[in-house]
């Protein structure tokens, strides 16, 4: 496990996977769009608005999935101090925030025609909004420190404490009265969604998950590049001819950042 946590190993493993992942994601989302917009029936009660479900449910799933991933990475980063765990958590946050926001927006666009309101302050919607704020808080927090290690510590703690919100989102429809419908896919009696609607839903869920991993790999690479740039600047090799003698790098002491100065 520890071996795979090395950034160089991560790059070596993901490089050949990435093109296949991109291909699979494109196929899944394209076929998912075909089935969700064209080749699936309208709902007998909700009419064509059921087509919003094929975006809303996968986006909600991704919002929660990304958060669980981010919190687990945060835990690993706190316990084992793996730089890659911290990088994965940072790379996941904007993706999860995007999907959570999309879940809220598509939910609003679905709620207006079906419930007669864009928004209600019930448990499901409110806990989902809190999820979005947790993502935004995490992003703001990890970037608020000059020392990335301190930022990651604070961010990981926030991600872990906020993880309590995940089961609240999931079970809010059972615990409190709400306009929101109860769980219809992951439930004890099996899915309550008609098979003709399960197919586009599954395609979109897998497609969005594929998209997440594609963007995750790219963002991890981005984060690794930025760390390498920071390390090169901190190592002081650029000080003598003034390339990097700006005031912002002066307060750093390279010895504080053992990992970066390697």
């Amino acid at each position: 496990m520890h071996r795979f946590a090395k950034p160089s190993v991560f790059l070596k493993i993901t490089a050949p996977i990435l093109p296949w992942l991109v291909g699979a994601t494109v196929i899944l989302i394209a076929s998912g769009l075909y089935f969700s917009l064209i080749a699936s029936p309208v709902d007998y009660q909700q009419g064509a608005t059921v087509r919003i479900m094929y975006l809303h449910v996968p986006a909600a799933w991704m919002g929660l999935f990304c958060y669980v991933g981010m919190a687990l990475c945060g835990a690993m980063s706190l316990i084992w101090k793996h730089p890659l765990a911290d990088i994965c958590a940072r790379a996941t946050a904007p993706i999860g925030a995007t999907f959570t926001a999309l879940c809220l927006i598509t939910g609003s666009l679905w709620g207006e025609p079906m419930w007669g309101t864009w928004w209600v302050w019930d448990a499901r919607l409110t806990s989902m909004l809190i999820l979005l704020f947790l993502y935004l808080g995490y992003i703001a927090l990890v970037n608020a420190f000059d020392d990335p290690e301190r930022g990651s510590k604070a961010g990981s703690a926030l991600a872990l404490v906020g993880a309590i919100n995940v089961p609240i989102v999931k079970f809010s429809v059972d615990w409190w009265n709400t306009l929101h419908q109860p769980a219809s896919i992951v439930r004890v009696d099996g899915p309550a969604v008609d098979p003709s609607m399960q197919l586009p839903l599954a395609l979109m869920i897998f497609g969005f998950t594929g998209y997440y991993f594609v963007v995750l790999i790219l963002r991890v690479r981005l984060e690794l590049n930025e760390r390498r740039i920071r390390a090169l600047h901190l190592s002081g090799m650029f000080d003598d001819n003034g390339e990097n003698s700006t005031a912002e790098t002066k307060p750093y002491d390279p010895s504080h950042n053992a990992e970066a100065s390697q």
Partner: peptide, 19 residues
């Protein structure tokens, strides 16, 4: 979209745009 075009197309548009 069965009269719901003003809700369904923005949903798909915003999702595609954001991603």
């Amino acid at each position: 979209m069965g009269g719901y075009a003003s809700y369904i197309w923005p949903s798909y548009g915003i999702t595609a745009l954001a991603m």
